[in-house]
C-alpha cells in the first residue's frame, strides 16, 4: 500500500539518507529503530513533505509522487491520506482538545462542522479523553496532549499514520498511557509507521521492524526475527546496548 523507494537527503555536506526503500502493507505496524542521527526522523519528514528529499519516490494507494519534484497540490493530496504524530505533540494552542481534532476535518478535508464534531468526539472517546473536550492544550498533561495528537491523526481516517518518537518528550510515568493508546490502534488494524526507542513496545506491537543506521536500512524483518536472531552485527550491537537485561536471546 505504501511503497518508498530510494530516498536520499543531504543537509549541506551531511548525507542523512543514503537511499532508503521500504514497503508497508495495510494493517502493518512498522517500528523504525536506530540511534539518534541515523536518519529516522528525516525519513518520515520527507514522506510528509516537511523536508524536500533530494531524490526518491513514494507510492501511496493509487498516488505516485516524486519526493523531490512535486507540486503543492500533490503534497497536500498525500497529506490528506496520511497523518503525523509529533514528538512535541504540536497541538494548536488556540484551540480546545475537540477543536484540535475537528479543524483538520473541516479545513483539511472539507467536512461540515457538525460531522467533524461528531467524528472528533468519537476520536476523543477512543483515546479516553472525552471529559477533556473543552480543555486547551496548556491545561493538559504531556500524556494527554499526545493522546489528543493521536486522536487528531486518527480522526482524518488516514491510510497510514507516521509517529515521530511519540513518547520521547514525555515524563516516564506518562509514557505508558500513550503506548497503550497506540497499542489499541494496532489491535484495530490501523496502519502505522512508528519511530521509537521503546524496545519492549516495538517488539510487542509491530508486525515489522526496520533498523536504520548511518542513513541506510541495515536490516528489516518481523520482530521475532530482528529481536532474537538479527543477521547483521550492527543490529545486534544496537539491540544489546538498548536491552541489556532483556531476554532477546531466548
Amino acid at each position: 500500500m505504501l511503497k518508498v523507494q530510494n530516498v536520499k537527503k543531504s543537509f549541506g555536506t551531511n548525507e542523512v539518507l543514503k537511499g532508503v526503500s521500504f514497503e508497508v502493507d495495510k494493517g502493518d505496524v512498522v517500528a523504525v529503530l536506530g540511534a539518534s542521527g541515523s536518519g529516522k526522523t528525516t525519513l518520515l519528514r520527507c514522506l510528509e513533505f516537511f523536508e524536500r528529499a533530494d531524490s526518491g519516490h513514494m507510492e501511496l494507494g493509487d498516488l505516485s509522487v516524486d519526493l523531490h519534484v512535486h507540486s503543492k497540490k500533490t503534497a497536500r493530496q498525500i497529506r490528506q491520506k496520511t497523518a503525523f504524530v509529533f514528538q512535541n505533540y504540536n497541538l494548536f494552542e488556540n484551540k480546545t482538545a475537540l477543536e484540535n481534532i475537528s479543524l483538520g476535518l473541516t479545513a483539511g478535508h472539507g467536512l461540515s462542522k457538525k460531522e467533524a464534531e461528531k467524528i472528533a468526539a468519537a476520536a476523543l472517546e477512543r483515546v479516553g479523553l472525552s471529559d477533556r473536550a473543552d480543555y486547551y492544550p496548556c491545561e493538559l498533561s504531556g500524556g494527554q496532549q499526545q493522546r489528543i495528537g493521536i486522536a487528531r491523526a486518527v480522526a482524518v481516517n488516514p491510510d497510514v499514520i507516521f509517529f515521530d518518537e511519540p513518547t520521547s518528550a514525555l515524563d516516564p510515568e506518562l509514557v505508558g498511557e500513550v503506548l497503550d493508546t497506540i497499542k489499541a490502534l494496532a489491535k484495530e488494524g490501523t496502519t502505522m509507521v512508528i519511530i521509537t526507542h521503546e524496545m519492549a513496545f516495538a517488539r510487542d506491537v509491530s508486525t515489522k521492524v526496520i533498523y536504520m543506521d548511518g542513513g541506510v536500512i541495515v536490516e528489516q524483518g518481523p520482530p521475532d526475527v530482528i529481536f532474537t536472531k538479527p543477521r547483521e552485527e550492527r543490529t545486534r550491537k544496537f539491540l544489546a546496548r538498548f536491552i541489556q537485561d532483556f531476554d532477546y536471546v531466548i
Binding site: 510528509e48 513533505f49 516537511f50 497536500r76 497529506r79 490528506q80 496520511t82 497523518a83 503525523f84 509529533f86 504540536n90 497541538l91 494548536f92 479543524l103 483538520g104 476535518l105 479545513a107 483539511g108 478535508h109 495528537g149 487528531r152 491523526a153 482524518v156
Partner: peptide, 8 residues
C-alpha cells in the same frame, strides 16, 4: 506542520 499534516 501539524496543520499541514491533517491536510490543511
Amino acid at each position: 506542520e501539524a496543520g499541514l499534516s491533517v491536510g490543511m
